[in-house]
């Protein structure tokens, strides 16, 4: 079947199998490999992307379900001049990543948390990230990074192309 969607601002149409998962569509068809797959049970959040302003686990969405949608992945966050998104910047400053495998999903989920709550407490950040697992950081610096990003103001909870993100 044919699906069309806007991925990181670019409109595209592809012929896919109905069972193709959005995560595999992004990785294999679009060649956007930042989005990772860490589980089979919608548990880890490594595959989190933003679809029509909402964070979703792309391993549990069919590409066909995202037909017509606006999709943003980690690759779509930085500005054209390479300027980092406030959440990306904060993850670097606070050492919010180690091996980096959870990071693309974690960054997208963090944007979702901030969209929902622009100034979350530690506890609220932890609850907002409950669907994202990290084996390396013990979450400590991830929580700090999200709180640091919050200080950048409302842009921290938004993805580019004026797509609103809500949690």
């Amino acid at each position: 079947m044919k699906v069309s969607m806007t991925v990181n601002g670019q409109q595209r149409t592809d012929e896919v199998e109905p069972r193709l998962l959005l995560a595999h569509y992004l990785r294999e068809v679009c060649g956007l490999k930042a989005t990772n797959i860490g589980c089979d049970t919608t548990s880890c959040g490594a595959c989190t992307v933003v679809v029509d302003g909402l964070t979703v686990k792309s391993c549990t969405v069919l590409a066909a379900q995202a037909d017509g949608a606006q999709v943003t992945t980690l690759e779509g966050l930085a500005g054209p001049d390479g300027e980092l998104h406030p959440v990306q910047r904060a993850f670097r400053e606070e050492h919010g990543l180690q091996c980096g495998f959870c990071t693309p999903g974690m960054v997208m989920a963090a944007i979702g948390v901030l969209a929902d709550n622009p100034d979350p407490s530690d506890r609220e950040v932890r609850e907002g990230l409950e669907g994202n697992l990290c084996r390396c950081t013990g979450y400590h610096n991830i929580v700090r990074a999200v709180r640091t990003a919050a200080q950048a103001g409302p842009t921290a909870g938004q993805v580019p192309q004026a797509q609103e993100v809500q949690a």
């Binding site: 959040g45 969405v61 989920a109 669907g131 949690a167």
Partner: peptide, 9 residues
């Protein structure tokens, strides 16, 4: 229910 991403779907 679940986590934010689950609740979005």
């Amino acid at each position: 229910v679940g986590d934010p991403q689950v609740r979005h779907r």
